[in-house]
């Protein structure tokens, strides 16, 4: 059971040189992510959505406001909140297996149990048989699967994802989105987690989310929160999907002159 509460969060970066204007990345952002809810932070680059995710992970501290996970303030980074990075951030000197086992080792999980968890998670992301490979021997999509397996293996309360599919080519991206949807639909309590996804893709947000938070341009504020009740698995051609996409597109269009 894990909820995320973001209350009045602001982030200001001091200017680099003397006389430089401070940069207001985020301003009074408030929203809640319910237990086992999939929440997307949607906005263009520079809206502070990644900053917000980094604060959720504990890599950075908010200038003002509070971030609570299960009603406790977020402190230093911890395995309760693991991150899937856009550039995968796999340890290149470790095999697939060792990468996934890393967090379990840090948690001091016994070796026998560790092997079992690694096997289970690699099966989940469809990488059975690749245990002994090194990251440089894998495609981008496979690397991101390892990264997801690694983040899930420690059984975090919240899974944080920073544009996880943005570096993939179009084909791989839609496949990964589909599989993510499949994983989300599973009832396995070890998999069905509270998730926060940062993305600039409207389609990706609709495909995966229960709850979309649209951010304004810098300084980022909550523009609108949207519930997505479409049945899963979702189809991009579905009229309800299209209608929702157009609605969000109009919202974002308001904010930005340029479409992506």
């Amino acid at each position: 059971m894990s909820t995320v509460t973001i209350d009045g969060v602001a982030k200001v970066y001091p200017g680099h040189g003397a006389g430089d204007e401070p940069v207001h990345a985020l301003e009074s952002v408030s929203f809640r992510v319910a237990d086992r809810e999939f929440c997307s932070l949607l906005g263009h680059s520079g809206c502070g959505k990644t900053t917000l995710l980094m604060m959720l992970a504990g890599f950075e501290q908010p200038t003002a406001g509070t971030i609570l996970v299960d009603d406790r303030p977020v402190g230093a980074p911890a395995w309760q909140r693991t991150v899937v990075f856009q550039d995968y951030a796999l340890f290149p000197w470790m095999t697939v297996e060792e990468n996934v086992a890393f967090g379990l080792e840090m948690k001091k999980v016994a070796p026998a149990r560790r092997r079992e968890v690694v096997r289970h998670n690699l099966e989940l992301v469809g990488l059975k048989g690749f245990e002994r490979r090194y990251p440089h021997q894998l495609s981008g999509g496979m690397k991101q699967r390892v990264s997801i397996a690694r983040a899930l293996a420690v059984d975090p309360a919240v899974l944080l994802m920073d544009e996880p599919f943005a570096a993939l080519d179009a084909q791989n991206r839609s496949r990964m989105q589909e599989e993510m949807g499949r994983i989300l639909a599973s009832d396995d309590p070890a998999v069905r987690k509270t998730m926060v996804l940062v993305t600039h893709s409207i389609e990706e947000a609709i495909l995966l989310s229960d709850h979309i938070v649209v951010l304004t341009r810098r300084p980022g504020r909550v523009k609108e929160q949207i519930r997505v009740d479409l049945p899963r698995p979702r189809q991009e051609g579905d009229p309800a999907f299209v209608a929702l996409r157009e609605r969000i597109r109009a919202l974002i269009h308001d904010e930005y002159e340029i479409e992506t």
Partner: peptide
Amino acid sequence: EANLIRAARCLGAG
């Protein structure tokens, strides 16, 4: 890479 260190930290490394 900063993200390698971040990844290790969020996986529980001291």
